[in-house]
Amino acid sequence: MKNKEAEADSIDPRLFVGGAEKALRVLRAFQDHRHPQSLTEITESTGLGRSATQRFIYTLKALGYLRQDKFTKRYTLSPKVLDFGFAYLRNDYLVEKAFPYLLEASKRTDETVNLTELDDTEVIYVSRLPSRNLISVDILLGQRLPVYCTAPGRAILAGIQPEQATDILERSDRQARTKHTITELSEIERKLEEIRHFGYALSDQESFLGDISIAAAVRNHAGDVVAAINIAVPHPRWSIAEAERDLAPVVIETAWAITKALGGRKI
């Protein structure tokens, strides 16, 4: 698992297509902004020249990945960009193998069940079965959350090499998302030791107020951690003691069932 700096160092300039990277940079300019973007704003976000930005915007608009309001002249992503995400979900071996077990966990608990994968310092939600009950947080497929304060993130960190986990945590922007968020590196690493001992991770309202989450890591045939399953429930409908008593066993069993489906074994 390499960090972004190591990945950059490994790029072969003879094969790297700079134009493709710049086009993707324009698309990423919309990632952190919910409102339509002007040409000036996109230029500032990407760090590209105004003329180059204009050409990339025109190309992406012509291909159907951007659309422009005819009155404000501002740009937004078009629904066509969802094709890439759904192509990933349709073709991802892990999502396919995990789904029956996520469904079983959802039926057993009648609560929200998620599957997440690690991407550098964040986890990405790649499969989700929402509860029919009242939920405290509405998460969408493809949504990202930081690893340091989420149960699935910590479950994954606890399963990889300690030095890799420390590297990820040191590069994370460990801001307090709620009054309950643990941000100190030493305290998070102590939590990781507890996860290795008990087999599951617990986050008590550290990412969102009112959200309790319990997670366990999923491994592949080589024994590498590839994902985490978590069950999220609202406080005060659930207490921490109830969640650990009733949900932790389900989470651990489900993670192990998916691991076996991937050809993995207990280590």
Rank of each mutant, 00 (worst) to 15 (best):
K73C: 11
P234G: 12
L262K: 01
N230L: 01
S127F: 03
S78H: 05
K61I: 00
T112H: 03
P249G: 11
F30S: 07
A216Q: 06
V17A: 07
A20S: 10
D246I: 08
V225F: 15
A241F: 12
N114F: 08
L89A: 14
T150P: 01
A215V: 08
E41K: 13
L15N: 02
D173Y: 05
T178P: 07
A227H: 13
S239W: 01
A29L: 09
P162W: 11
R34F: 10
T150C: 02
C149R: 02
G153Q: 05
C149M: 00
E5S: 04
D9L: 10
A232N: 13
Y75M: 12
F99Y: 06
F86I: 03
T72I: 07
E187Q: 07
L63C: 09
I124W: 03
A227I: 06
K260M: 12
N230W: 04
L169R: 14
Q161I: 04
G19P: 01
S38F: 14
R108I: 02
S131M: 02
Q164E: 15
R25K: 13
K97S: 04
A243L: 04
G153I: 04
P36A: 12
A261G: 07
E122P: 04
G85V: 08
L82N: 05
R128F: 14
D246Y: 13
I258F: 03
E163M: 08
S186C: 00
K260A: 13
T46W: 00
R34A: 12
I195E: 01
P79S: 10
K73Y: 12
T181E: 04
E104G: 00
E253S: 09
F99D: 08
K73S: 14
L262I: 01
V81K: 12
K73D: 14
E44F: 11
D9G: 03
P79W: 07
R108Y: 05
L94G: 07
A261W: 07
E206C: 07
I11W: 08
G47I: 06
N230G: 01
V251T: 09
V17N: 13
I252A: 09
G64I: 09
E7K: 00
I267H: 11
T46L: 05
Y88G: 04
L134I: 10
T183E: 08
I182M: 03
A176K: 14
R67N: 10
L247Q: 04
H35W: 09
Q37C: 12
F30I: 07
